[in-house]
Design a protein around this nucleic acid. Structure first.
Lengths: 121, 121
DNA sequence: GCAGAAATGAAAATGATTTTCATTTCTGTG
DNA sequence: CACAGAAATGAAAATCATTTTCATTTCTGC
């Protein structure tokens, strides 16, 4: 855990939700920290790898990040307001793995989202 | 509905699942069609606007597309050659339903694909 | 204190996607 | 058919988030 990662974690705590790498960089600069955009990306990458930060994609493809202590998981996305809830996905992981093994696929990844209308919409 | 859109629809039918714009372009060229990458992007954009095609994002931010309204099933997609295998998804269906109920979401649907490298690649 | 390792960031590279723009194809009309 | 305006096409350039490179700085253990 190096300096950049600590800075990024602290700004993510302050934000309390999703933010893009560029936004986080701006916020850090504005609050007086000295850090390069490169280091923000590197820190985020490493935090994502360590499963300290959760990364997903906006519709336009830009990555957004938030703190998340949990293991790999998926989202329940509201079709109406766009709010997301983390959901538990171990059943899904098992399924994806089993399917891939059954057909002898290598380097397997998966993609899953559940859509619906949230209670408040 | 112009020529490019027809070509893109026909290749999407052939693929039967998700594919990126670049993959679709390659497939079209390989099957003897003459079409520019620009036109593939333009056609996809317009088909997405018309809700004929679904667009989503892989983890790396690349957009992938598939025809809407295809019978509901899931695929194991080869990242390298694009070939697909239909896979059994009842475990997944149950999972999606359970997650949605747990969070009181209504009108639930889901998307799931498993990616990997097929045995022959 | 010092050598080697790790971290840093500016600048260049990358790669998907979008835009520009000149050219080609289509469409309807007389 | 001819012809004008509209739509479609695609090559090349532009865009933009992200990654890589690489020279420099900071750390670490001895």
């Amino acid at each position: 855990m190096n300096k950049s990662e600590l800075k990024v974690i602290s700004v993510l705590e302050r934000v309390g939700g999703f933010a893009s790498a560029q936004q986080l960089h701006q916020l850090l600069l504005r609050s007086g920290e000295s850090i390069g955009l490169t280091s923000v990306y590197r820190a985020l990458q490493s935090l994502v790898d360590d499963k300290i930060v959760d990364q997903l994609r906006k519709d336009d493809g830009e990555a957004i990040y938030r703190l998340c202590g949990e293991a790999h998981h998926h989202h329940l996305v509201c079709k109406s307001c766009g709010s997301t809830v983390e959901i538990e996905g171990s059943a899904l992981e098992k399924w994806a793995k089993a399917m891939a093994e059954e057909h002898e696929y290598r380097e397997v990844g998966h993609l899953a989202e559940v859509f619906g209308i949230c209670p408040s919409c």
